[in-house]
Design a protein around this nucleic acid. Structure first.
Lengths: 332, 332
DNA sequence: TTGTAGGCGTTATCAC
DNA sequence: GTGATAACGCCTACAA
């Protein structure tokens, strides 16, 4: 049923090795030989077996994506981007167990490397900054690309957005609309982006001439519940903020829900902004203003960097977008 | 660096074949021989290579998940459930390109089968009802499990919820709260669940004593935009519904957004219910009432069925849950 | 209960 | 340019 390389060789009237040369796009094959082989390949509908290739050669035609994130949208988008690039490259994508419930992630990844021998690995936050994992991969010599790393920059190719600049821009936009007391809900402390975004917020407040009120900063965990809790804390203040900027869309949705529950009119009495712009941003009411991070592009570029194999670890910055919606109003 | 089976054999003082026996849990290994081998395995941190196993034996220790869905939450949850079960079984999960942008899916899956030789495949809607794919898999003898199939029931093991009963229950709940004109937004026609849910709605309306008003039924596509559009159409009616039941949460969120935009108070003038209960349901305001479908369980059970290998294709029904929230009120 | 021989489908090496 | 031949790491069949 399934054709093997020897079948192709027989049909094309050449040796197995020559077929292999054509398949791997090697030089030193006469054009018409190449053509004959290609015809035989498509006539037999031949597709090389990955296991055999992996065993005999240096490539496995598989890459792995280590993705753990509180937001399904994020995971979906990264994965979708990565698999698109993989499809172009004729490589398969292995979705590897997320870290959240993994006891020893480095051990888990070691097993992945030993057993599946992936040609490369994509790491998303917070694993992109997991020292044990980075050490393992470096030691084993497995090529890897990191999405939004926060530490050991330059250790590997990476793709990211300028989180500080993005948070700065959004904060600035809020300030320019007249807000003076802007609450901030930071992200999960384990993610490098959280600190970067907080820095952007603080810098913008500072550059705006005001002193940051640390009471206006609450720590969240990137999820809906922590956003709602942070909003409750902020709105309980004697002098509550007129705007709240949350470090993720899920948290911003939580802020919105808390405001609604308390009868705080949005945007009349409170403006709400988020970060990431998954589709969630338009599901809530009123629609959120957000910093849009093109997550799918991050995944695509991550895979692309894996295939690029530049001499120097390439760092690619992706542009973010500021999307201001009706939820932003001047304070009353 | 990486140990091979021959290393283990040497250390344990047995033959390669005996190590293989222990690894594959075969009988006829003396307890203390087994123990010696196991010690060597963990001492060397040996992990069998998948490619070699796949090439030599009948298993590849990989299964593939074909998942295409408009909802990232759905994809994430199914995948998460499946990978949990796979982790328990020591099998790897391949996330295969979603169908949405695949020209010839059957061809794509044929390539997957030829190249990766997965031990089994999980199909989610709408691929669970793709005749070409089903024929291919059956012909090739690749074990497969379907999530929520609508056709050729019994062809393969399957896992599903009773969509008709679920829609019936929700419609009944709305009726019992006094609603008489209940709008319905059906799902993407390509999904078997869409028709099943519509049937449940119609049956409940019929059993409630009323005649269904077909003008109250609008076709959506499972996404936010189509939900909003359907709501607009319904609210434009001379005699608009007092409740709208959408066949997915994304569409329900769209309904809610449209109502808000038009100044239709929810739940005072309009009740909104959805289907699926991703986290989205609580992000909107007011929180949606939904039929909760445990999607993660669907994924887990799908993988489980693949490993179970019963003589007869096993059909497992998963219970749904009715979650009624504040958004449901009696009509004014 | 254990070991030996052979081969899975491809790539790498080295002649021709 | 092209073709033998030997691996790759493991499992299957069969022998002991």
């Amino acid at each position: 049923m399934r054709a093997r390389i020897s079948d192709v060789a027989r049909v094309a009237g050449v040796s197995i090795k020559t077929v292999s040369r054509v398949l791997n796009n090697e030089r030193y094959v006469r054009p018409d030989t190449r053509r004959r082989v290609e015809e035989a390949v498509s006539a037999l509908n031949f597709r090389p077996n990955h296991a055999a290739r992996s065993l005999a050669g240096r490539r496995s035609y598989q890459i792995a994506l280590i993705c753990d994130n509180p937001s399904p949208y994020y995971v979906y988008a990264v994965q979708d981007g990565a698999r698109r690039r993989c499809a172009e490259a004729g490589v398969r994508l292995i979705a590897q167990p997320y870290a959240a419930d993994t006891a020893d992630l480095a051990e888990e990844i070691a097993a992945l490397v030993d057993q599946a021998a992936p040609d490369g690995i994509i790491l998303t936050p917070p694993v992109s900054d997991d020292a044990a994992v980075l050490a393992l991969l470096t030691e084993r010599g497995v090529p890897f690309v990191r999405v939004s790393p926060g530490t050991q920059v330059g250790l590997s190719p990476a793709v990211f957005i300028d989180n500080r600049a993005a948070a700065y821009a959004m904060t600035e936009a809020l300030l320019s609309r007249g807000h003076r007391r802007i609450g901030f809900v930071s992200g999960h402390p384990r993610y490098a982006a959280s600190a970067q975004r907080l820095t952007g917020y603080l810098d913008a407040i500072g550059d705006g001439g005001g002193a940051a009120d640390l009471g206006l900063i609450k720590e969240g965990r990137f999820d809906f519940a922590s956003g709602a809790a942070a909003a409750d804390a902020l709105l309980d203040l004697a002098d509550p903020p007129t705007a709240i900027f949350a470090s993720s869309d899920d948290m911003a949705a939580g802020v919105l829900a808390a405001a609604h529950r308390r009868g705080v009119a949005v945007p009349a009495r409170l403006s709400v902004a988020g970060f990431d712009d998954t589709d969630l941003a338009r599901s809530v009411w009123p629609p959120l203003s957000t910093v849009r991070q093109p997550v799918g592009v991050l995944g695509w570029v991550a895979a692309d960097l894996l295939f690029a194999a530049a001499p120097e670890p390439e760092q690619r910055e992706i542009a973010f977008e500021l999307v201001m919606r009706e939820s932003i109003a001047a304070p009353g």
